[in-house]
Amino acid sequence: MAASNLAALLPVYLIFGKEELLIERALRRLRDMVEAEGNPDFDFDTFSGTNAKADDIIASANTLPFLSPRRLVIVRDADKMTAEELGLLAQYAKDPSPAATLVLAASSIAKNTRIYKAVDALGGVSEYAAPKKSELPSWVVKLFIAKGRTITRDGAEALVRAVGKDLRRLESEADKVIAYVGEKQQLERSDVEEVVVETAPTSIFEFLDALGRRDAASSLGLLGDLLDNGDALAGIHAMTLRHLRSLIGIVALRERGMSPNEVARAVKLADWQYRNLARQAERFREVELVAALRGAAEFEAKMKTSQGDPRLVFERWLVSVCDRSGHTVTRSA
């Protein structure tokens, strides 16, 4: 989808591919258009193909936009709809509403299906295939640019060698590097090598998920695995801070009375990221997360001044974050 604004969009798109990250990015760009040019509360609908009915989707698409030049309707997991339901959408694609854009997102779709042929006739079929191995370093360079940073070619190649071709993990490791270097704008190979470990069997995100569940035993075990695999404690700490800030943002917005959809738009995360963080945020109160951030800041200060064993100090802080006793999160000893 090359359109830069809602008015330039086609009436129906079918986007598919095995790389969920690429699909999510495409959908995010569309949502950003609605937020920039109209009101998503009135002119945006999303459906799940696992339980959506074609009649409801078509009714939404046929609703006139209120504040936007076009209404946007997204159907996720469209390939999970029955052939009959997809057939109804194919019929709609032959005479679609001129004031709406319907986007069907799928992991795969056969080219001989009615829906594929109908949307292809409009020029709206796009496959989001993963980059070839030789293209991955260039993809990483563009990834950092999209995040407001730059990285040298050899830095991008080092990240690809360490992580492999998993795009979601490439992005997550890029986020880890950015969190670690702070305000530094031009990243280099040395920054990557400082933080990323080649093919580490334990992911930092497994650790962060355990922390979000307030599971102290699993958090400590996964922390040990990360450290044993060579991950730098400073990098783990940086990503943990970032994770806590995301959680506190969600909790704070919820406590201000915002609906889940409003919170999701405000934090500007991919839907899969928001859903995961939202589940974790339910386990915390805002005061607990604020105290946890204070404790993390104290840990960082002690680590920089060599006060105590850094791992032990971090583990104590980690246990305090996971404490469900109702007490305020303790500061690192």
Results as ranks from 00 to 15, higher is better:
residue 41 D to F: 01
residue 82 T to L: 02
residue 305 T to M: 13
residue 29 R to G: 03
residue 239 M to W: 02
residue 247 L to S: 05
residue 231 D to T: 00
residue 242 R to I: 06
residue 298 E to N: 12
residue 79 D to L: 07
residue 312 L to H: 10
residue 180 Y to D: 11
residue 228 D to I: 01
residue 67 L to P: 02
residue 21 L to I: 14
residue 318 L to G: 08
residue 169 R to T: 14
residue 236 I to W: 07
residue 122 L to N: 09
residue 13 Y to W: 09
residue 156 A to L: 08
residue 130 A to W: 11
residue 138 S to I: 08
residue 249 G to T: 05
residue 10 L to H: 15
residue 29 R to A: 05
residue 241 L to C: 01
residue 248 I to K: 07
residue 70 R to C: 09
residue 298 E to A: 05
residue 56 D to T: 13
residue 60 S to T: 00
residue 27 L to F: 00
residue 131 P to F: 12
residue 271 D to C: 04
residue 234 A to Y: 02
residue 27 L to T: 00
residue 163 V to C: 02
residue 245 R to Y: 07
residue 45 D to G: 00
residue 10 L to D: 15
residue 207 F to P: 01
residue 259 S to Y: 02
residue 65 P to S: 04
residue 318 L to Q: 09
residue 111 K to Q: 15
residue 65 P to H: 06
residue 49 G to T: 02
residue 219 S to F: 12
residue 176 K to M: 13
residue 295 G to H: 08
residue 148 G to V: 11
residue 260 P to G: 00
residue 329 V to M: 01
residue 273 Q to I: 15
residue 44 F to C: 02
residue 165 K to S: 14
residue 93 A to Q: 08
residue 166 D to K: 04
residue 93 A to H: 08
residue 209 D to Y: 06
residue 193 E to M: 09
residue 135 E to R: 13
residue 194 E to N: 11
residue 36 A to L: 15
residue 258 M to H: 13
residue 134 S to T: 09
residue 150 T to R: 03
residue 20 E to C: 03
residue 79 D to Y: 09
residue 161 R to N: 09
residue 201 P to T: 02
residue 24 E to C: 06
residue 75 V to A: 10
residue 11 P to K: 14
residue 313 V to F: 04
residue 159 L to Y: 10
residue 244 L to H: 00
residue 256 R to D: 10
residue 286 E to P: 04
